[in-house]
C-alpha cells in the first residue's frame, strides 16, 4: 500500500528498466564561457547575501558595551568588493547577450545583484542610523555623569580624595570617548562614501522597473500572444481574401465587356 502523503513518486528506475539498450556514458560537455561567468557571478551574489546575513546577526548583538564596529566594517568592505566584482562579471556577460538564454540569465543575475545591493544599502543606512543614535546616547550619558559628579562634589566635600579619583576617571573616560568618536566619524565617512559608490552603480530606476515588469508577467504570455497573432493573421487573410475577390469580380467584368466588344467586332464589322 502506498502512502498518500508523498505527493510524487520517483519512477526513474521503473523507466530505466524498460530501456533495453546498453547505455554508454556520455562525454561531459564543457559549459561555455558565458555560463561559467554567470555561475561565478551568481555564486558571488550568494556569498554577498551570506555576508549581509552575518552583518545583520552581528549588528544585532552589538550594544553600547559590545562594540564590533571593526568586524562590521570589514564585512561591509568585503560585501562592497563582492558587489564591485559582480559588476565586473555583469559587464563581461553584457557583451555576450546573443541569445534568449544568455539574456534571461543576465537578467536573472542582474536582478539578484540589484536585490543584494539594495539590501546592502538598507543595512548600511540603518547601521549609520544606529551609530548616530548610540553617539547621542553616549553624549547624553556623559552630560549626566558630569552633573552627578558635580553634585557629589558639592555635598560631600569630605570625600575629596574620592572626588579627585572620580575626576581622573571621568577625564580618562572622556579621552576614550573622544578617540572613539573620531573613529566613528572616520567609519561613518567611509560608509557614506561607499553608499554613494553603490548608489551610483545601481540606481538605474529604468532597469529596475523593466525587470519588475517581467517579474509579474504571466508565464503563459507567449501562448496568449500566439493566439492574438493567429487571430490577427486570420483577420488579415480574410481582408485580403475580400480584396482579392472584389478584384476578381472587376477582372471578370472587364473581360466580359472585352468579349462583347470582340464579339460585336468579329460578327458585325468583319
Amino acid at each position: 500500500m502506498e502512502i498518500a502523503s508523498s505527493q510524487y513518486r520517483d519512477i526513474t528506475q521503473q523507466f530505466l528498466s524498460k530501456v533495453h539498450i546498453k547505455l554508454v556514458a556520455l562525454k561531459r560537455e564543457q559549459p561555455n564561457q558565458f555560463l561559467l561567468t554567470a555561475k561565478l557571478a551568481k555564486e558571488k551574489v550568494d556569498a554577498a547575501n551570506e555576508r549581509l546575513q552575518e552583518f545583520h546577526t552581528t549588528s544585532q548583538s552589538t550594544g553600547l558595551f559590545n562594540d564590533q564596529d571593526y568586524k562590521l566594517n570589514s564585512i561591509l568592505s568585503q560585501v562592497k568588493d563582492d558587489i564591485s566584482q559582480i559588476h565586473i562579471h555583469l559587464n563581461q556577460l553584457k557583451t555576450q547577450l546573443n541569445n534568449d538564454l544568455n539574456q534571461s540569465i543576465f537578467d536573472f543575475v542582474q536582478q539578484k545583484a540589484m536585490k543584494t545591493s539594495d539590501s546592502f544599502k538598507k543595512l548600511v543606512q540603518s547601521h549609520t542610523q544606529r551609530i548616530k543614535q548610540q553617539e547621542e546616547k553616549r553624549n547624553r550619558l556623559n552630560g549626566e555623569r558630569d552633573r552627578v559628579i558635580k553634585r557629589v562634589g558639592f555635598n560631600q566635600k569630605y570625600q575629596k580624595l574620592n572626588e579627585t579619583e572620580e575626576e581622573a576617571n571621568h577625564q580618562s573616560i572622556q579621552m576614550f570617548d573622544q578617540k572613539q568618536n573620531e573613529e566613528k566619524l572616520v567609519s561613518m565617512q567611509k560608509i557614506e562614501s561607499m553608499l554613494n559608490d553603490i548608489a551610483g552603480v545601481f540606481q538605474r530606476v529604468g532597469t529596475m522597473v523593466r525587470l519588475q515588469e517581467t517579474m509579474i508577467e504571466r508565464i503563459d504570455k507567449y501562448t496568449d500572444e500566439a493566439q492574438v497573432n493567429v487571430s490577427k493573421g486570420r483577420k488579415e487573410l480574410q481582408e485580403s481574401h475580400k480584396r482579392i475577390s472584389s478584384n476578381r469580380g472587376l477582372i471578370l467584368k472587364v473581360f466580359l465587356i472585352l468579349f462583347i466588344f470582340a464579339f460585336i467586332y468579329i460578327v458585325f464589322i468583319l
Partner: peptide
C-alpha cells in the same frame, strides 16, 4: 512509459541525458 523508453532508446545518448523521472498528482 514503455513507449517513451522505446522511442528514446532509438536516439543515441537520449536516455543518458535523463536525470530523473517523476510522477505527480
Amino acid at each position: 512509459l514503455e513507449y517513451m523508453a522505446k522511442e528514446l532508446s532509438k536516439i543515441s545518448g537520449a536516455v543518458q541525458k535523463i536525470q530523473k523521472v517523476y510522477e505527480h498528482n
